[in-house]
Design a protein around this nucleic acid. Structure first.
Length: 420
DNA sequence: TCTGGGGTCCTAGGACCC
DNA sequence: TCTGGGGTCCTAGGACCC
């Protein structure tokens, strides 16, 4: 069996943990640069405000009228709370996999059944997370990852489940899938949903009843696997769920437009550090580096976007080597007179470090010890303890975060204060 | 006054080669 | 001069997820 533990409105819930004054109010959290809405607590949802990913300025008045509390994204807080959540969930199963900042897959193997039964087990996970971390979660359990996802959807959205759903019989499977739209299924988005609707397939249950042959013919094997998973056949094995990433990106829009080459360079180097750290964390090496920068399509009719790909002579995960190349590529990407709005880097074409074939003629130039030393120090203290000088000491392109809450759990100076 | 997220994977199509 | 097949590599853009 598979379980999916999922924090309800993660960012909004994190904001409420250390601020009792907003617990009974609608809370909205914005994306980077306070651009769009990215989370709304259940009170906001009930009031019908806080639709995900609409630009904030477009709904600002509406939110004000509803008396909503607005918060900027506080990733320091969410990342720390996420860690606590994961640490609490993972001991409940022999295998676990962190799927995203607010979701965690648990895998129990094929035969295992908890002594208390699945339902009680799920409730225990939920209660424990609430007790230890004060975050509300949903737990969905099912025989395949896709059904666990569907169960978690039911646990969160459907009446009568109260945060816990277990798909352990054909009846309950039908009951849940019939109440879900096809687009509520993991892997079925807007476009696929439209095409399925045209075939008369509206609910998840409709899809599960569609012959897989037809789906394979009209769509692809991936969608076919989804249908089989809905019917209880495991197509996404535990290894698939945990498959290593094939590329890593770090990109961000600026708080203010950037025109200065040096500022753009600092941003790109920052992204190199972030992407390279992810790469090393996965114990992978990259063959290709992509660097891009662009203006905003909203600013002007003349959309400017340049991206370049560099192929390293040998696979690498060395931040200094990657940064040097990124810096060179930037010379061809930068153009004066452009109001840059976004930039980023990608590390592509990865291979596992232990499978890497060394080149007979090109010596390996990765400074592996230096990189692991930097990673060790930065993970022990702060990400910014040791960094490449090219990133700059005083970055002037900082994000706009007008409504930022304190980093309650990660900065001594911002610890919550209880007044008696 | 200004304000429009971030990440990963896949595919179609073009360029080029033999 | 035009045409044919098949392969690789690269790029842009689409689709999906949170």
């Amino acid at each position: 069996m598979y379980a999916l533990c999922d924090v309800n409105s993660m960012y909004a819930s994190c904001e409420k943990v250390f601020d009792p004054t907003i617990r009974n109010r609608p809370v909205i959290v914005l994306t980077n640069n306070d651009g769009c809405i990215c989370a709304a607590c259940h009170i906001a949802k009930q009031m019908g405000v806080g639709k995900k990913f609409v630009p904030y300025f477009q709904v600002k008045d509406e939110l004000e009228k509803a008396g909503a509390v607005i918060r900027s994204s506080n990733y320091e807080l969410y990342a720390d709370m996420s860690q606590r959540f994961m640490d609490t969930c993972t001991p409940f199963a022999p295998h676990s996999h962190i799927y995203s900042i607010d979701e965690c897959f648990l895998y129990y193997g094929v035969k295992y059944v908890p002594a208390t039964g699945w339902h009680e087990h799920a409730k225990r996970i939920r209660r424990t997370v609430w007790k230890h971390v004060r975050l509300p979660i949903s737990v969905g359990i099912g025989p395949t990852p896709t059904l666990a996802k569907a169960a978690s959807h039911a646990a969160k959205r459907l009446d009568g489940f109260r945060g816990v759903a277990v798909i352990d019989s054909p009846q309950i499977r039908q009951q849940i899938l019939s109440q879900m739209a096809v687009t509520d299924i993991w892997g079925i988005g807007r476009k696929l949903g439209q095409r399925l609707n045209e075939l008369g397939i509206y609910s998840a249950w409709d899809l599960s009843c569609t012959p897989t042959g037809l789906i394979k013919k009209q769509f692809n094997t991936l969608t076919q696997s989804t249908v089989e998973e809905l019917n209880g056949t495991v197509k996404l094995s535990w290894d698939d769920v945990r498959a290593p990433k094939k590329e890593f990106f770090s990109t961000r829009s600026f708080g203010q437009r950037v025109t200065d080459k040096n500022q753009l360079r600092q941003a790109v180097i920052t992204h190199v550090e972030i992407a390279a750290r992810k790469l090393r964390q996965q114990k992978s090496l990259a063959k290709h580096l992509l660097v891009f920068a662009s203006n905003s399509p909203h600013d002007t009719d003349l959309y400017y976007r340049r991206s370049l790909v560099h192929s390293f002579p040998t696979y690498t995960s060395d931040s200094t080597i990657i940064a040097t190349v990124a810096n060179q590529l930037l010379n061809h990407i930068y153009s004066s007179g452009i109001n840059f709005y976004k930039c980023g880097v990608g590390l592509l074409n990865l291979c596992p470090k232990e499978q890497h074939q060394l080149d007979l003629l090109i010596p390996n130039q990765d400074k592996e010890q230096l990189m692991s030393c930097i990673d060790a120090i930065n993970s022990k203290y702060s990400r910014d303890t040791i960094f490449l000088a090219g990133r700059g000491i005083q970055q002037t392109f900082a994000m706009r975060r007008e409504f930022l809450s304190p980093s309650f759990t990660t900065r001594l100076s911002q610890l919550p204060v209880i007044q008696c």
